[in-house]
Simulated assay, not measured.
Amino acid sequence: MTFPVGLNRVLEPAGVLPQAAWRLDARAEIGADEVRIRVERLNLDAASFRQLATKHGGDGAAVRAEVLEIIGTRGKMHNPVTGSGGMLIGVVDEVGPESPLPVKAGDRVATLVSLTLTPLAISDGLAGWDGMGEQVPAAGHAILFGRSVVAVLPEDLAPELALAVFDVCGAPALTDRIVRSYAGAAQPVTVAVLGGAGKSGSLALTAARLAGARTVGVVVSDAERETLTAAGLADHVAVADARDPVAVSSAVVAALGAPATVTVVCVDVPGCEHGAILATASGGTVIFFSMATSFPAAALGAEGLAADVTMLVGNGYVPGHAEFALDVVRRTPAVRALFESRIAAH
Rank of each mutant, 00 (worst) to 15 (best):
R41T: 14
G212E: 08
V313C: 06
D107R: 00
A247I: 01
C272H: 09
L153S: 08
G75R: 04
V189L: 03
V150D: 07
R330N: 08
A258V: 05
C266K: 15
A345H: 05
R147A: 02
A260I: 11
G75A: 00
I143R: 05
A238W: 08
G86C: 09
S290H: 13
N79I: 13
A276F: 06
M132D: 14
R243N: 00
I70F: 05
A185R: 09
F49M: 12
V113I: 15
P137T: 04
A258E: 13
A28P: 12
G146Y: 02
A302V: 11
E94M: 01
S249V: 01
P270D: 04
T215P: 03
A306K: 14
E94Y: 04
V179A: 00
P137W: 03
E303H: 12
A142D: 04
I277R: 00
A234K: 06
A28W: 13
F295N: 11
R9M: 08
E323P: 00
A337E: 14
A298D: 08
L153Q: 00
H346V: 08
E340D: 10
V189P: 10
T116L: 05
G257E: 07
D25A: 10
S341T: 14
L11P: 07
R74P: 01
T227H: 01
D235H: 15
P245D: 01
A298F: 08
R209N: 02
V329P: 00
S294V: 07
A307P: 11
M291G: 15
